[in-house]
């Protein structure tokens, strides 16, 4: 499902202008990483995708639905948003109930919701904790639970806000696998992340934001090669890109294998 953002400006009730005329078109099935420093407007932008925020000026359309003309409940069936802080999202008394809430709310039967919840919990590795209280879980597990709650809704668009924060290597590997699975199913995956190495490996397109504007937008290898734009956005290039640049290799390798291929070519 596609997302079309046209001349989007947003001002918080406090008077803070977070977005200044953003234009962005995301096609169905794209995997897009949104990068930028704290306060760049990343979270404000993606909160428009499921109608949590409504444009002050401009429009946002998800699969042709103008977010101003649909309720958050309607939009939630199209765009699932996993909060950065799981404690902003979780409220049920058990892990199972938390993950069933979304599909149930979308009108699925209890049996369907139960099956969707079981699948989603298995995907994030929390199947054994389905009877636990979410607040007895470690913060990194609550983040995975918040992800499961969105996965269980089978939305065509999935938005992840800082998914790898606080995860250990196994947690990051699990989230990477989920992102790859969503991509393989043709769903639109959008992530906000400071983890540039994770973004380089799993997202084909990168959008750089700074001061409520888009600074750069394109294939990951192109954007990560634009040192000046990255500096303006206060984003460090991925480790492999820095290494390739230090060695004078041409191109921005996104994965370890690509870096080693570049190295092999340079030695020929």
């Amino acid at each position: 499902m596609n997302i079309i953002v046209s001349a989007l400006s947003f001002t918080y009730p406090s008077g803070v202008e977070a977005l200044h005329g953003v234009n962005l078109a995301i096609a169905a099935g794209e995997a897009v990483a949104i990068l930028g420093e704290n306060g760049a407007g990343k979270t404000t932008l993606v909160k428009h995708f499921n109608g949590l925020l409504r444009p002050t000026r401009g429009t946002v359309a998800v699969g042709g639905w103008d977010t101003r003309e649909h309720s958050v409940a309607q939009m939630a069936a199209r765009a699932g948003y996993v909060f950065q802080n799981p404690d902003d999202q979780l409220f049920e008394r058990t892990v199972q109930a938390e993950v069933m809430f979304g599909p149930h709310n979308l009108g699925r039967t209890a049996a369907e919701a139960g099956a969707a919840a079981a699948d989603a919990l298995a995907q994030v590795g929390l199947a054994a904790q389905s009877g636990a209280n979410p607040y007895d879980l470690h913060l990194s597990e609550r983040k995975l639970l918040a992800l499961a709650a969105v996965l269980a809704m089978h939305t065509p668009v999935v938005v992840l806000d800082e998914p790898t924060t606080g995860q250990d290597a196994r947690g990051v590997a699990r989230i990477s696998g989920i992102v790859e699975a969503l991509k393989a199913e043709g769903r639109t995956v959008i992530a906000i992340s400071h983890d540039v190495d994770f973004c380089a490996e799993h997202f084909d397109r990168v959008v750089l934001m700074a001061g409520g504007l888009i600074l750069a937008d394109g294939p990951a290898a192109d954007v990560f090669a634009r040192a000046d734009d990255l500096r303006r956005a206060d984003v460090e290039p991925p480790q492999l890109v820095r290494l390739a640049s230090a060695l004078g290799l041409l191109g921005a390798p996104l994965r370890t294998e690509q870096f080693v291929d570049l190295l092999a070519q340079a030695r020929l």
Partner: peptide
Amino acid sequence: GLAPTRYTQAARLAVGR
């Protein structure tokens, strides 16, 4: 359950090849 830096990962792969 820990991952080394990409520098170490790249070096290990390069040695392997």
